[in-house]
Design a binder for these strands. Sequence first.
DNA 1: TGCGAAGTGGAGGACGCCTCCGTATCGTAA
DNA 2: TTACGATACGGAGGCGTCCTCCACTTCGCA
Lengths: 199, 199
Amino acid sequence: MTEVPQVVTPKASDAATTERPLRADAQRNQAKLIEAARAEFVEHGADAPLEDVARRAGVGIGTLYRRFPTRLDLLEAIYRNDVDAIAGRAVELADEADVWSAFRTWITEFSAYAVSKRALFQQLFDAIGKGSATMTHSRETVSAAMTTMLERAQQAGVVRADVSASDVTRLVGGCTMMGALEPDQAARMVEVVLDGLRA
Amino acid sequence: MTEVPQVVTPKASDAATTERPLRADAQRNQAKLIEAARAEFVEHGADAPLEDVARRAGVGIGTLYRRFPTRLDLLEAIYRNDVDAIAGRAVELADEADVWSAFRTWITEFSAYAVSKRALFQQLFDAIGKGSATMTHSRETVSAAMTTMLERAQQAGVVRADVSASDVTRLVGGCTMMGALEPDQAARMVEVVLDGLRA
DNA sequence: TGCGAAGTGGAGGACGCCTCCGTATCGTAA
DNA sequence: TTACGATACGGAGGCGTCCTCCACTTCGCA
């Protein structure tokens, strides 16, 4: 219900490291594992048995462990995947004729997603540190998407011109990440922020 | 180093429930278990084997499980214990001649403790919910201690009069609980707050 | 001092974690 | 197309932790 991401981008080898790409079957399995893990973690919490994840993905437990040596690696992969999906959603929404509605939709989806995964983020964040490649990637990706959405909305004159992308990120982040809020309370706060942003 | 609490108050049956008190040996074991669990969790993280906790306490694993059916129950007991210790510390400090120094010490210790256990709290909080007896007890106890410390400091004229206990709690809480801060960064923020509070 | 209630301890079954290596599949070069 | 090394797969099994269960011990009241 608050699940935004579905897009499984097999992800071309990103960083500088010159590793040869995964074999085709391995790539398929990796994608299946991420998908299965997401589903399993949603249904049974973030410490569902990894054997169940492997079974659901239709691969052996050994394959899971080769690709994701720890549970955290799996969580990290899901997270990256989700961040990419959120950015992808911004691209999709860029086609919408109603610019305000597109902006509004994106912010709402983004924050709903953030709320639903707050505890998970905290855990990841604590474990891998804010300097990690994943966190940098996440910051940059979200920031780029936010900039795109915001600039379009500002050029169309539906969002006030005196706020920056980082302001908006901080505002929305503040509504969703701090404290243990009820989802609908966070949603109300986001409504207020959106109201404040509208030109 | 950031470990404030040592006081193990065996805790008279608190709520309304008319349960007969624990037998003396059971009470001793309960205290030993809490103490051992605290030590074990500090040394090996919050998912140290419960068998080790039992061994360290010098009791059987069965005894541990009878008293604390889940790991969370144990964490909860430690937390309650700690909250009581912090409140106890406020009482101790009420004797200090230098009122400002006492206030400052208490706030510093309080926040250092909060920072050191932030992740744990988050976990507990998410698991048992803010309406739980433990959380209510915690809120009330801390609030009472804060009120005591603050009023004394205000009457002595060392802390500005226009702030309430809940303001201060929120300020300090804000420095310590939000985001994944480095301990010394949090400490600096607390310094700033203290500076702002001084009359 | 005796006796029932309360408490204890730890063996053992269940279950999840993770490794290891024989087998299968891929992809490239001829 | 074949052939062959590199790459990847699967899952049995060893290990460690969880948690239950119940025969035995201890407490504390009369």
